[in-house]
Design a protein around this nucleic acid. Sequence first.
DNA 1: AATGAATGAGCCTTCATTCAT
DNA 2: GATGAATGAAGGCTCATTCAT
Lengths: 213, 213, 213, 213
Amino acid sequence: MDLPGKAIHGETRKRLLDVAGEVFAEKGYDRTTIREVCRRANANIAAVNYHFGDKRKLYAAAFDYSLTCVDEKPTPASDTDEPAEDRLREFTRRFLRRLLDPGRPSWHSRLLAREMSEPTGALEAMVRREIRPRYEVLQGIIRELAGEVPPRVIAKCAASVIGQMMHYHFARPVLKLVSPVYGDLEKHVEELADHVTRFSLAGILAIAVRYRK
Amino acid sequence: MDLPGKAIHGETRKRLLDVAGEVFAEKGYDRTTIREVCRRANANIAAVNYHFGDKRKLYAAAFDYSLTCVDEKPTPASDTDEPAEDRLREFTRRFLRRLLDPGRPSWHSRLLAREMSEPTGALEAMVRREIRPRYEVLQGIIRELAGEVPPRVIAKCAASVIGQMMHYHFARPVLKLVSPVYGDLEKHVEELADHVTRFSLAGILAIAVRYRK
Amino acid sequence: MDLPGKAIHGETRKRLLDVAGEVFAEKGYDRTTIREVCRRANANIAAVNYHFGDKRKLYAAAFDYSLTCVDEKPTPASDTDEPAEDRLREFTRRFLRRLLDPGRPSWHSRLLAREMSEPTGALEAMVRREIRPRYEVLQGIIRELAGEVPPRVIAKCAASVIGQMMHYHFARPVLKLVSPVYGDLEKHVEELADHVTRFSLAGILAIAVRYRK
Amino acid sequence: MDLPGKAIHGETRKRLLDVAGEVFAEKGYDRTTIREVCRRANANIAAVNYHFGDKRKLYAAAFDYSLTCVDEKPTPASDTDEPAEDRLREFTRRFLRRLLDPGRPSWHSRLLAREMSEPTGALEAMVRREIRPRYEVLQGIIRELAGEVPPRVIAKCAASVIGQMMHYHFARPVLKLVSPVYGDLEKHVEELADHVTRFSLAGILAIAVRYRK
DNA sequence: AATGAATGAGCCTTCATTCAT
DNA sequence: GATGAATGAAGGCTCATTCAT
């Protein structure tokens, strides 16, 4: 007998995961209630504890799941033999597109943003699987551009590149209040990518020149 | 002899404000309980209601108070006739010092960070009073460096400069996980300021050159 | 062996309803705490929220439940072909018995009394289901006694009959203070019913005679 | 120096009393907060406790004060040598006028109504000073109409007369729901007084006749 | 006589969690 | 595998009241 709302065996867990990602991203960990998650997932109130143990573990699972969902290869820009400059441009374009494009399942990056400003312990896996690889790709590019410079300098340059882009994500509400220009800017991803690329390119080279003999 | 729980008339409100700032910054809005604030402020549980009305208003007041507490003048770098390059250096140094120096009452900037990632409505005043003036100072410096370029370009450069620095604040937990280098870096404010200045200087000039005839 | 606090599945709701009726009737809405209701119902403090949503809805449910509990048929006096006079006597007897008999679950009528003096919105259903039918029965009897008189006159007579009886309920504390006689009277339901019947019969006929040609 | 809102010495107490009567009548004892009373009386939050001791005593004082405020003589209908029938008419007219006339300071009777349905202990004085005298006047009239009948019978008749009238006060919300006719009726005090007089007159005489030899 | 600050008790509500089925 | 009933801990808030001035 098929009761309405009764899903296929084992489907509940997946639905829970999907909904949890959205809700956690939307409201943050604390403001999210497992009641709402269960309701939106059309599941029983006890389902979370049944499938995941408790709220925290649901969060961890949702977070982890949000990573495996990302189909896009994170490192395609590195293993080519294009010039480093082009690869930098490609890197920023991809990064910003992913960060700002409204078409994407935004809850993924929002989840990340939340996790960054209030880490719950689920961050580590994410860094290992998502963030660090990107940093490494970027550092590879920078190394090629800068030549023989200490790793510390590479690190600073990488942070400078990423920081410029992340700013448009994190400071979004502030930027909009600072000037209407920024409200408009976030819609022009390509323009931003171009700006960041040029700005960073010059920056990297200027830094590097000090370490050349 | 000062018995706990019985302070000088009118002191409680101030104590509440101080403690609230710390706790809100430390735990975020939701995880903060007015019970804890009151306990740490050595005040009665009803004191918040009496002095501020409710939790949200206490938050707003603490936030606002955290702004008025900042004694440092926000715009000393602009009204000199030093070369723009030096003023940029001075700007980044001040900014980073304020952002990262552990000696400062950290809850001020943490409060800001929280407000940025989950705005509660108290953000607007802060932008008007704190953020925007700084952006304007910075944009003044950039304009001087870049010469005749569209305001939109100035805006992008300003975001690039600020973004580099804010990244060390916002992404702190992530950076530490990415590489131990970053954990060390945040202790060397002067070094970072120097890096950001050089990197940005080159970036700004490179961007500007495209708009020169 | 029945451990307290762990009753048969689904029993709690009913127990809550029963106790709530009593307590609300005894203390009024405001003075009633859900804590006490839960304690007396041997239920957890959160049970009210779980089963009814909140205090107000518990009240509404208890009120409604108190209506469905009344097993006695409200209209047996009307569908006979006894003389109208006898039916009036039967009506008042039933009414007063129900109003004053200490053997009955008093919280039912006390709940009604409370609702009358400070309506909470639950009154409408009660009027529709309990009060109006009785008024209509009574008006039927009066119409038969009075003959062709305007509906407005019927209405006034009905109010006069009911009012006499309700007075013993509502003004009970006052009446006892006015004279000890009243303290005694409320125990003699049959005597009161007889009095009200005779008094009203004469009243109705006296009123009616003015409208006869 | 005269601060605005600063009243003449000793005025506060009186203002408090006035406001308290209104608010208690409007909201009932529990729903009334000392804060609101003080605010509306333009007095300090501690004024109630200062002048009256506590909330309950304020209520008692306001209740008592509401009695002394009634300028109208309660017993003018008795000391004439008009025929008893006319005096009954006059009694009901006064009673209903006072009960229903919207022009009067309604909080007086509302306070009484509240006190009747949930006595707080302030009722006794009121009965002694206000209610009992009226009952005695009415019983005098009835005695004159009924002749030699037992006091108990007089008492029942008095309750029948008063009950008819009080019903329009107490059951007002119910009556309006039962039929729109009642909503209209309460505006026609004279008509109601006439009805009650005729109805009661006949009732009293019919009761009395059984005790005549 | 009167005040504003401060108190402590207690209420309703909400939440994550667990139990019995 | 999954559910609905039931729990207990705690949180925000409100209120009458008192204290020091």
